[in-house]
């Protein structure tokens, strides 16, 4: 019973911490937009926390640059378990236009494990909130119902990719990268 309670609580109260890995600030502004009154993520319990020690979900934006890699890894390690990462924006997904650059290692997953991908340049606020909800649905069965309802009502095709879906999408690309 306690287990169920804990699962419910984790799904109900994701505190997010915003992690900029080298983004152009476009995605960061969209994250802030998602937290603003129009989308109001607080109704799902999302709170913006400054310290990774308090956070459950990292919203990581931008391509992973060589300069910031160690810092991102350190911040990720300093957060308490259980912790999740949502890669926001096409840069966060793959490094996008910056990828072959001398200073870019790829997407966020070049340094830390990613649990949900939200592409888009910049990612839309509704896509970001949908990504966080999809992540919560893996924790809490009740959130799953909400995600189903959203999928029935809106066209969510291609808004968000799980790591498995992303691996499928990438397969040919992966080969080219060597």
């Amino acid at each position: 019973m306690l287990d169920g309670l804990v699962k419910w609580a984790r799904g109900k109260s994701p505190w997010v911490c915003h992690l900029n890995c080298g983004s152009c600030n476009g995605c960061d502004i969209e994250i802030v937009a998602a937290l603003m009154p129009r989308f109001d993520l607080e109704r799902f319990g999302v709170l913006l926390e400054g310290s990774p020690r308090h956070a459950d979900v990292f919203l990581a934006t931008g391509p992973m640059t060589r300069q910031i890699r160690d810092r991102v890894v350190r911040v990720y390690e300093q957060a308490a378990d259980p912790k999740f990462v949502v890669a926001v924006g096409t840069c966060g997904v793959s490094g996008s236009p910056f990828y072959p650059g001398y200073n870019v290692l790829g997407g966020v997953d070049a340094a830390i494990p990613v649990d949900m991908y939200v592409p888009g340049c910049p990612a839309r606020p509704d896509a970001i909130s949908y990504g966080v909800l999809r992540l919560l649905a893996t924790l809490d069965p009740k959130a799953e119902a909400l995600v189903k309802e959203i999928e029935e009502r809106y066209d969510t095709e291609g808004l968000v990719y799980t790591p498995e879906e992303m691996a499928q999408q990438r397969d040919p690309v992966e080969g080219a990268r060597g």
């Binding site: 310290s51 160690d70 810092r71 890894v73 350190r74 911040v75 390690e77 300093q78």
Partner: peptide
């Protein structure tokens, strides 16, 4: 890794 290190923005 650095889990117990002082948090100072990485």
């Amino acid at each position: 890794g650095g889990k117990l290190k002082t948090y100072a923005c990485g």
